[in-house]
Design a protein around this nucleic acid. Structure first.
Lengths: 141, 141
DNA sequence: TATTGTTATACTCTATAACTATA
DNA sequence: TATAGTTATAGAGTATAACAATA
């Protein structure tokens, strides 16, 4: 699919959410291509930096990603030197995902790309409308 | 001093859209299970009924679905007797997707399920907020 | 030459079950 | 017994190329 047509069947909200969300993900994937990353790598990197040293289980919960998928995503990020897996001081089963210096630099750069994707998606809304949209999205179940 | 409204953390709206959209799709898929259909079958059936006899190419454009995927979806719906592929009166390459009587009945039933999924997703919003959200979603690029 | 539908194919995403090592 | 991480796997979604029939 490469075409992007406006007309919509029934104006259903779930359908509109799915389409807009899919577009956002595809646009971010395309923007991240030079980095060899996908949007889900970006969310893992971003959440790891924001919360500072989450376990993989916690990452999965926060991001709504299956634990087995977290493993693969962290594998990729670790291979690129963007995160480390540090031992948990008290629980030897657990491994804490920590962003490296290089990961922090990559995050700073890719964050700009994510902003750009959002800005383009929301280009026709004014500042107040953008805030309203985000607030409503946060209140969905 | 007027409080500066919290800035929209750019890069976050796309993420929220993707998560909410994914939830909506999964919920609808689960609701449609008894019918042996997925959410994409529902959108094809719904658009075919609404526009009445679209070609497969037009269906793909309207729904943002790849033509090769439309073939598979229409195959499924046709096998279940929910749509027909009628010849185009003027262009023998084209096949018009037409909803059968049984398809119309199934659509009436599944539409209730789709509404239920939406209602649950939006349960914490009042009527005005629901309209606002839909209006904003329609204005995304 | 271009377009519609179609087949084949490959890659990503999602979800589940089962295994290991620890607790 | 239960939990964190891991591996393997299968199904669904997405995207591309190539082909036949027709325009």
């Amino acid at each position: 699919m490469t075409q992007e047509p406006p007309p919509v069947p029934s104006g259903r909200v779930g359908y509109l959410l799915a389409r807009a969300g899919g577009r956002a993900i595809r646009n971010l994937n395309r923007a991240l291509e030079p980095y060899g990353l996908r949007s889900r790598h970006y969310t893992v990197l971003s959440a790891s930096a924001e919360h500072g040293g989450l376990s993989q289980r916690e990452l999965g919960l926060v991001l709504g990603v299956d634990p087995s998928a977290v493993v693969a995503l962290v594998d990729d990020l670790q291979r690129e030197g963007l995160v480390r897996r540090d031992p948990h001081p008290e629980d030897r089963r657990t491994r804490l995902v920590v962003v490296t210096d290089e990961g922090a630099r990559t995050l700073a750069e890719t964050r700009k790309l994510a902003r750009g994707v959002d800005d383009e998606l929301l280009a026709d809304l004014d500042a107040a409308e953008k805030r309203t949209l985000e607030e409503l999205l946060l209140r969905l179940r």
